[in-house]
């Protein structure tokens, strides 16, 4: 995890976003000192609900930068990713794909490459950038944890995007599975060595397959109205001039950032 955390910290810095405004709902347990170092607000949610927890944070205060960091994106809560992409909810989804559940002794996940699982998961893994892109995500990228500079750039870039961005990070898992299928004993190096950078590659072609190089890169970067844009457009159409658009206001410690647009009373209830 540590190269990713470093990249995350640097990415926030490079983006110009204040760490204090960044909220990280996650179903991966972070160490408290890591959260302290990052300077963000961290929420360890129940399995699979980081994206929807983040949706609540974002809609309640649109000024926040919400970055759900998820491990196994496509099992519990996989549907949330599909819908958040469709809505173009302003979230940066970071999927840390180590291909195995580290905490529970190396069980494989549905996006596991067959290379890593001899007995249980032999199915084709999800192609996450392709899935996100086809559901409506505006920014998709994949890097290994050793593509540090590229990863930092992607995080910085995505933090300033208006809409749903997804960055898949192939991360070193435990050394539990090394030795299998002649994989190099240092997994992170294995990923790096067997990856190939293809920026702007059609996400349809970036599936992770056994015996093929892993395609990494920034694949897509486009514009689409966000959920709040569409909400405001629709309600202005229905209600007309009387409608006050819903939107962000600056955050501050006194709580003025209570994010309900021009809502003049909401932030003062403390």
């Amino acid at each position: 995890m540590s190269p990713i955390i470093n990249a995350f910290a640097q990415g926030i810095k490079k983006s110009g976003v204040k760490p204090a405004e960044v909220c990280v709902p996650s179903d991966i347990p972070f160490e408290p000192n890591v959260v302290k170092q990052l300077g963000v607000d961290y929420f360890h949610t129940i399995r699979g609900r980081a994206i929807v927890f983040g949706t609540g944070l974002k809609l309640a205060n649109p000024a926040l930068k919400v970055v759900p960091v998820v491990g196994d994106l496509m099992t519990l809560g996989g549907n949330h990713f599909v819908h958040a992409s469709r809505r173009n909810m302003e979230l940066l989804v970071i999927c840390v794909n180590s291909f195995i559940y580290k905490k529970i002794g190396g069980k494989s996940v549905p996006s596991t490459s067959p290379v890593f699982s001899l007995y249980s998961t032999f199915e084709e893994p999800f192609n996450i950038p392709h899935l996100g892109n086809s559901c409506g995500a505006i920014y998709t990228a994949r890097w290994t944890a050793l593509h540090t500079d590229e990863l930092v750039n992607s995080i910085a870039e995505a933090l300033n995007k208006r809409g749903l961005s997804v960055i898949e990070i192939l991360a070193p898992g435990p050394d539990y599975y090394t030795g299998i299928n002649n994989i190099d004993s240092n997994l992170v190096k294995f990923y790096h060595k067997n990856s190939e950078i293809k920026n702007n590659e059609d996400p349809r072609n970036v599936g992770i397959m056994p015996d093929e190089n892993i395609v990494v890169g920034k694949f897509t970067d486009k514009e689409r109205p966000t959920f709040i844009d569409v909400y405001n457009a629709q309600l202005s159409k229905v209600i007309g001039d009387k409608f006050t658009p819903y939107g962000p206001v600056p955050t501050s410690r006194t709580g003025a950032g209570l994010g309900t647009g021009k809502n003049e009373s909401g932030g003062k209830d403390g």
Binding site: P32, G39, F43, H44, T45, I46, G255, G257
Partner: peptide
């Protein structure tokens, strides 16, 4: 409030 600089660590 989240995002107000308290560096929250909230866990289930």
């Amino acid at each position: 409030k989240a995002g107000a600089g308290y560096n929250l660590y909230i866990s289930g």
